[in-house]
Simulated scan of single mutants.
Amino acid sequence: MVWFDMPSPDEQDRRMQMLAEAALPRWGLVADSITLIQHEDNAVFCVTAGGQRWALRVGAANGWSVQEQRAEMDWLTDLRRAGLSVPDPTVSLSGDTVEAVDLPDLVEARPCVLLRWVPGDPPEPGVPVEVARRIGALAAELHQRGEVFASARDVARPEWGFETLFGPGSVFARTELWEVAIGHHGQQRIGAAIARLERRFSSDGARPGAWGLIHGDLHRDNILVQDGAVGLIDFDDCGTGPSLLDLAAVVESFCRRLARSEGDRTLLRAALLEGYHHLRPLPDDVDAALRDYIAVRLLTTLGFIVSSTNPAVRSWGPARIPQILEQIDRFVAQDPAASA
């Protein structure tokens, strides 16, 4: 039997629970509780034992390999040593940070990782400007550490360049998906946006310091705040790419989900950029660059929604599609020389 071809959402979750229970002995952990907290691509569980909490991540089918996830864990370990508040990988009884776990009915083993829990909650509307400034500074520090880490080794992580995101092997080449989801006219609108973005990737690829190791999915839900301190989680999409793609993810999600007015948007955006620029330079065309990379974020989110068969994604995704298309239309209509 091939898992996940037909099972109901509840059955999928039950099988993920079985995998989680099979994984924990690899770390010698006897859990008091194992609670599923997210199941989109990966399945993530909150594990409690002896008064402590961990995040157990069961990798997605056809997701990142053991080698790729081990590279992620190595970077997280380096970031922890540098004092950043990020998940702390736990070494298994075999001495590894990634364990491939299988069950009799599973087509292939799933990579599993166990991470120390990072305290805090995602920021809410009304987040203090000073906290937004700290988030920008933390993003800059993350990119600085990424440069140092990648300079000393080959990092087996994906490259988030134009070809990966929008080229022939990407979800945007699967025309049958798009025809059903948004029709021919919608595809034309997306094509116009992608054509403009190719120029951005080309110009930034030649700019010193513009590319490096990035988080890859730095939106509001992957930022945690506790008593003013800031932490980052969910490095599953980390890889090499334009640093401003991370900053664009923060700006877009904060302005959409936290700002209660245009004044809020202006203040949050300015604070994020100020915090980042305090530690790491921003390009002269930062406004136009952020506009472009926000469009990248919107398109990749759209691609994720359209291509996903996950019930959780299908529950929230359809409502986002017209919102994203409206934003893409505004992007295409805007003068490329204009500020964001």
Rank of each mutant, 00 (worst) to 15 (best):
A312D: 13
R291P: 00
G191I: 06
I194R: 11
S202G: 09
L218H: 01
R220N: 07
L244C: 06
I328S: 12
G212W: 04
P242V: 12
I305K: 03
D284Q: 14
L279Y: 13
C255F: 02
S308P: 00
I321D: 04
D292N: 08
A210C: 04
S261C: 11
I328T: 07
S315E: 15
P208V: 10
P318E: 11
A192R: 15
S315N: 14
A206D: 11
G212V: 06
S261N: 09
L268G: 04
R196K: 10
V296S: 00
I305G: 07
T301Y: 00
I321E: 05
S315V: 05
D246W: 02
E252H: 12
G209I: 01
R265Q: 14
A295P: 01
P242Y: 06
I223R: 01
L290V: 05
D237K: 07
D217Q: 02
I190R: 13
W316E: 14
I324G: 12
L244A: 06
S253T: 15
A195H: 09
D234M: 05
I190K: 10
T240G: 08
S315P: 01
L218G: 00
T300A: 07
A333I: 07
D204H: 04
T300D: 03
Q327I: 04
S243Q: 14
D285T: 10
H278K: 12
A210L: 03
G263W: 07
S315G: 13
R256I: 06
D221Y: 02
D284Y: 04
R314S: 11
G231K: 08
A333E: 15
A271I: 12
I328D: 09
R200I: 04
P318S: 12
R269I: 08
G191H: 07
L273N: 08
L258Y: 03
S202K: 09
P242G: 03
A288I: 00
R314F: 04
T301R: 15
V250R: 01
D227R: 09
L298F: 02
V250K: 03
V313A: 05
A288G: 10
Y293V: 01
F304G: 12
T266S: 13
L299P: 00
D236F: 06
D237I: 05
D335I: 10
R280T: 08
I190Q: 08
D204N: 06
A319D: 13
P311I: 10
A259K: 12
G275W: 01
S307A: 15
